[in-house]
């Protein structure tokens, strides 16, 4: 039984999780030239969940959306290849703060009449962990953040959330916002024929102006620096030496 007609899954293009990025020597930003870019890992989990919901017949379609530059279509195409039905790029050259992303997503929710948005809990570049919560606030709807299990019964979603104290179960009425944690699922691999098929799926481009979103910048960046390095340590050869070294440091 269909629970919602359209699920929106925002995809952020980020530096691949396996790349160790560094601050540029002149401190003007991160050294990102030529590094591998991917869909934010938590967003891949979000898309996988949406696809499973569709496979259970609980949604009509899954729409992937990105708010970024033209090259972000690479990640949208990857999302289409994974199985999304169509894609929307809101094209902008600006680096957006989470509040602006949330406002843009709100405009897309209205435009697409979506009743469920599944986002990553955190983009692994900015590490903000804000966008889903902000969208839910602007929308005036529930949020199920850091979700590791999700089921629907009529118009209610039951979500298990990964919290500091363990696993918390909550119930939320739809429409709602869900953000994903690592244990929600394991995203599928894309097969070659699906990559070819994805080229024919619809990808629409919009602008922030068309959505009436003002990309205001609130926080001024004054500088970027590398983290302090820990001084290099020593190797010990056996447990007895380890115990001795721990004593010397005064920690046991």
């Amino acid at each position: 039984m269909t629970v919602v007609d359209t699920i929106l899954v925002p995809l952020k293009r980020v530096v691949d999780a396996n790349v160790r990025v560094r601050v540029k020597p002149d401190g003007s930003g991160m050294a990102l030239d030529g590094v591998k870019m991917s869909i934010n890992p938590f967003d891949e989990i979000a898309l996988e969940e949406a696809l499973r919901i569709r496979e259970r017949g609980e949604t009509g379609e899954v729409v992937v959306v990105s708010i970024g530059t033209q090259v972000w279509t690479q990640q949208l195409r990857a999302g289409l290849a994974m199985g999304a039905d169509r894609a929307i790029l809101v094209e902008t050259d600006q680096e957006l703060e989470p509040l602006t992303v949330a406002r843009t997503l709100m405009a897309l929710v209205e435009r697409e009449h979506s009743e469920l948005v599944i986002l990553g809990k955190q983009a692994i570049d900015g590490d903000n962990n804000q966008t889903g919560q902000m969208l839910a606030a602007i929308w005036g709807r529930p949020q199920a953040c850091f979700t590791s299990h999700l089921r629907f019964s009529d118009r209610v979603a039951t979500a298990m959330r990964e919290v500091d104290a363990g696993l918390e179960v909550i119930e939320v009425d739809l429409p709602a916002v869900v953000t994903t944690d690592l244990r929600l699922n394991e995203p599928r691999y894309t097969k070659l024929p699906d990559i070819l098929k994805a080229k024919k799926k619809p990808l629409q481009t919009l602008s922030l102006a068309e959505l009436n979103v003002d990309p205001e910048v609130q926080f001024r960046v004054l500088g970027i620096e590398p983290p302090p390095q820990r001084p290099s340590g020593v190797k010990v050869s056996d447990v007895a030496e380890l115990v001795q070294a721990l004593r010397q440091k005064g920690v046991v």
């Binding site: 570049d125 001024r220 970027i224």
Partner: peptide
Amino acid sequence: RPFYAGNAILTVEAP
């Protein structure tokens, strides 16, 4: 604040 998994530290000013 840290970002990029703590690979960089950002200094920001709030209005």
